[in-house]
Simulated assay, not measured.
Amino acid sequence: MWYASIPSQTVVWVVNRQDPVLNTPTVTKLSANGRIIIVDGQNATEWSSPMHTINVTGASAAWLHDNDNFIVSSYWSFSPESVAWQNFDYPTATLLPGMKLGVDIKKDITRNITSWRSRSDLSLGTYTFKLILSRLLEFFLFQGPTIIYASGPYNGAVLTGVPDLRSQDFTFIVVSSRDETYYSYSIRDPSLLSRFVVDATVGLV
């Protein structure tokens, strides 16, 4: 997926970054049991979304929101309770407004962002930015197994290593509860385009 309005193609999400489809053409479908599938020119399934944790009926639908969240929902309702799968649960190299970076214990999902291998190769790179759950809530940038940056622990107001994480244009939030712990941000001006990226070239966020 990429921005429609930016002349230079700017990819923000890839579903099958480790398994590119070689047998073209391809088609993306919504299966009868509500799973997104990619089939190749021989009608062989190249990729499918995970099995759902909720019941999905034949009335299910898939919908790409304008915020880049691609949702499979039961009963066409698109309420949070009806969402069976969404790409926001599986970020790649980019965190967009509304995405969560962290751990959802209830869904058993860990949301990290990992760099592309290079600007022309969108497979997994060597840099990963993620939350480490411990006594203190803190985010780390890894190069392979090595920590190269730490945000500092969250003190209830800010990440102590990033005290200037404030802006008139953005709202930053950190949530820690029994079910999930995550960082997210939103934009006050909807005309502003923003993305939080792990860069493969220089190893920065």
Rank of each mutant, 00 (worst) to 15 (best):
G98N: 11
A61I: 04
V197G: 04
T28Q: 12
S73M: 09
R166C: 01
S77H: 10
L137S: 12
W2L: 08
W76Q: 14
F139N: 00
G102F: 01
I147W: 05
S74R: 08
N155P: 03
L22I: 09
K100P: 03
V39I: 15
W13G: 00
G152Q: 11
R178P: 00
A59D: 12
D19H: 07
L165K: 00
V197K: 09
A44R: 14
A200T: 10
A44L: 13
Y90H: 03
R135M: 11
L96F: 10
W85Q: 07
T57H: 13
W47V: 01
Y90L: 06
S77V: 10
H52S: 14
L131Y: 05
S186V: 01
A93G: 05
D189Y: 06
S5D: 15
E138S: 08
W2I: 02
Q86T: 05
Y75A: 13
P163C: 04
T26D: 07
F142S: 08
Y75W: 11
T53N: 14
V83H: 05
Y185Q: 09
Q18C: 03
V11M: 11
A150E: 13
S31L: 09
T26Y: 14
S60D: 06
Q42S: 15
V205W: 07
D68F: 15
P163Q: 03
Q143V: 09
S191D: 12
S176Q: 14
F172D: 02
A150P: 01
W63L: 14
V27N: 12
T181Y: 05
N33A: 08
L204I: 05
W2E: 13
T171V: 03
I147F: 02
R135C: 08
D164T: 02
D108F: 08
M1P: 05
Y127I: 08
T10S: 14
I147Q: 11
D66Q: 14
Y127C: 08
Q9E: 13
